[in-house]
Simulated assay, not measured.
Amino acid sequence: MASNRQNDRETRQARERLRAYQARQTVHETRAKRRVRDNWIAGGAVLIVVVLAVATQLLYFAQPGTPSASGSPSATPTPSVSATPTPSASASAQTYTLPPKTLAGNRNWTGTLSINGIPLGVELDGSTAPQAVSSTIALTQKGFYNGLNCHRLTTGGFYVLQCGDPKGDGTGGPGYAYGPIENAPKDNVYPAGTLAMARQSDNANSQGSQFFIVYKDTTIPSDSAGGYTVLGKVTTGLDELISKVTDKGVQGGGTDGKPAVTTTIDSFTLQ
């Protein structure tokens, strides 16, 4: 009898151990399944966040008027992949006639471009950019530039001060547009002091009265139309323009917009 009771007790203990093991195993399996489920939920959440972030970025960069993802310069009033100064052919209050390119006389022209009381000595090359120089000569002779504001300054990786728009917003011109592009640098490098004509993106025949002064060495990539017509150069006064105008930055602290210091052409003379 004692032997039977001992066997029964051992059997009950074995069953209890089995039940305890099975209970622990069930808890373990439940926890394991819960971890797998939680991992899937967490992974799904991360994926959703990533997808939403990518979609938001794509939507942002697809909006007209926002900077491109590359952050290089553009030929529109905002910096983008082709960014350089851009005028339209729209007329000013008074319209002018494009002079023949022979006006430049195939020679160098010297003069003074006075901005905010800063006399910039300039030299234009009528032999390498005859049409652009002829247009500029004709406009200066008629006092076109006197009193116009320089409406655009860029500081974010390319460095230009853009002037010559009678509307003051990048859309004005003398009432005519012309081409072709002349004397554009083959390596797309515009040294400090370069005077060059602004134009619309991908449009060689959209030059008018707007020009830009490169105040630090700048690389401006060509677009489908090519580079930008180099008129000539600033020979003196650039350091003062930098310290008194361009170093003051852009209104609102951006990298492309109106100069923080109101910038006006006092006069532009050539001879």
Rank of each mutant, 00 (worst) to 15 (best):
Y190C: 10
K233E: 10
S201R: 14
Q207R: 09
G172A: 01
K186T: 09
V234R: 09
P221R: 11
D239W: 13
S224E: 10
D169Y: 08
G193I: 14
S209M: 02
V230C: 05
L241A: 07
V230T: 05
D165M: 01
S243N: 10
C163W: 07
T194C: 06
Q200D: 09
D247E: 08
S209W: 03
G253T: 13
G175P: 05
P166H: 04
A196L: 14
G252F: 01
A177Q: 15
Q207P: 06
D187K: 07
G179P: 05
S222E: 14
S209T: 10
D239V: 11
G227S: 09
F211N: 11
A192F: 02
F211G: 12
N188C: 11
V214Q: 13
G232Y: 04
G179E: 11
R199C: 09
S206N: 02
G170P: 06
Q200M: 12
G237E: 10
D169E: 11
A196C: 07
C163Y: 02
S243P: 00
N183S: 00
A225K: 06
Y228N: 09
T235K: 09
K233G: 00
K244E: 12
G168L: 01
S224C: 03
V230K: 08
T219H: 01
L231A: 09
Y215S: 03
G170N: 08
Q210A: 03
G173P: 12
Q210Y: 06
T229V: 07
T194W: 15
A225I: 00
G208E: 02
G170W: 02
P221T: 03
D217Y: 12
I242L: 00
G254A: 00
G164C: 14
N188D: 15
G226T: 00
E240Y: 04
K167S: 07
D169W: 08
A204I: 13
Y190Q: 12
G252H: 02
T236Y: 08
S222G: 13
P174T: 14
K233V: 12
N203D: 13
G172N: 01
I213F: 05
L238K: 01
D247P: 00
A177L: 11
T194L: 12
T218P: 12
G172S: 02
G173H: 14
G237C: 05
T194E: 09
R199P: 14
G249K: 01
T229F: 05
D217N: 15
T219F: 02
N203E: 13
D187T: 00
Q200T: 03
S224V: 04
Y190T: 06
G254F: 01
T236E: 10
Q210M: 09
Y228M: 03
L231F: 14
A192Y: 06
Y215Q: 05
K233Y: 14
N203W: 15
Q200S: 09
V245Q: 10
N183C: 02
L238T: 13
A196V: 01
N188W: 15
Q207A: 04
S224D: 06
A225E: 08
S224G: 07
L195R: 04
K186A: 09
G179A: 04
C163R: 06
D239T: 15
N203I: 02
K248A: 15
Q200G: 05
Y178K: 05
G170H: 04
D187Y: 13
D202S: 09
K186F: 06
T229Y: 07
G193C: 07
T171W: 07
S224N: 14
S243R: 08
Q207H: 05
I242G: 00
G254M: 03
S222K: 15
G168E: 01
N188L: 10
G254R: 03
Y178M: 12
G249E: 05
T236C: 03
